[in-house]
Amino acid sequence: MSKKDKPVQRPDYVKAPLSRRQFGTRIAAVLGIGGGAAYLAGAPAGWPLSMKDPTGLRSMPVHTPVQLGDYRVAKAAGVPDVVVARGGVDAETRLRMALEPLGGITHFVQPGEIVLVKPNVAFDRSPNLGATSQPELLSVLVRMLLVDARVQEVRIADNPIESPADCFAKSGIRRAVEQAGGRVYLPDSNAFKVLHTPGAKLIEQWPIFHRPLTNVDKVIGVAPVKDHNLCHASMGMKNWYGLLGGRRNQFHQDIHEIVSDLSLMMRPTLTILDGSQILMKNGPTGGDPSDVKPGDAIVCGVDPVALDAWAFEHLLERGQYYPRYLALAEQKGSGEVAWTGRVREVRA
């Protein structure tokens, strides 16, 4: 600093001393802020507003699991558990034929309810390859729910393996369902919640595609009948796999357990198996027309286990060497394998 710039003490300079009041305010501020911070950081965990985390576990994220309801409807006496409709000119007549002995769709669904229809849209394949549910049947079902049963909303949801938008587009399901008046729910990043399924062995706590299940009254599964490389057959119960989130590819290490767990997780109002394009081999992806066998059956029922057992024997034509998951599902109380005497077959 040059001499010129040196500050000069002027005689008329008056100091501005710290007033008592200012001093007091500062002390109070220091004590207040410091004390508050000390309380927040140091007060035992149970105290109000305490931020103390003595073990490091208090700050871990907590997921409050949700639980699914039981969507089943009481069955009238003398009604078969499974109905098979064969023949008929189109999916609509067949579906009506199949539902009639069960009491019709109005037995299962009441006006004003919200219904989730869960198709299998796992891959981006055209419907005639048998890897996904048939759009025609879904459109008939959606219309039936909206017109005959006068429900408030029909939701269609799945969490496919491949890109959801593509799968719904290429399987023809999005177009069919939206034209019929249903609403498609695709999985978005906030659509999953942790689900608690008491009694399930592998998925007691597991993230599930919960958005379409919120406030839902009834759930209907619409599944194709497919060969499956590991669990032999993917039908009505395996269809619920499409609601799971998370790293679900680990479940192949114990596939039968997970499929039977799924039957415990979801107690559907109704299960519909579509026997119009049956994937006989190369499942569950298929991809070649020679893998598919056309059929003319629609199977509806309230016992998912018997339904799968029957379809395994009669649609996939695999005899009675049922996959092990059926026995496990029976043990878990989801239904009974022995379908003899509980199936009614109707033919156009």
Binding site: H228, L230, T285
Partner: peptide, 15 residues
Amino acid sequence: IPCVVCEEVCPVSPK
């Protein structure tokens, strides 16, 4: 340990 997710998802036919 059983697994074969890879076989399941293989999209070509035959796999």
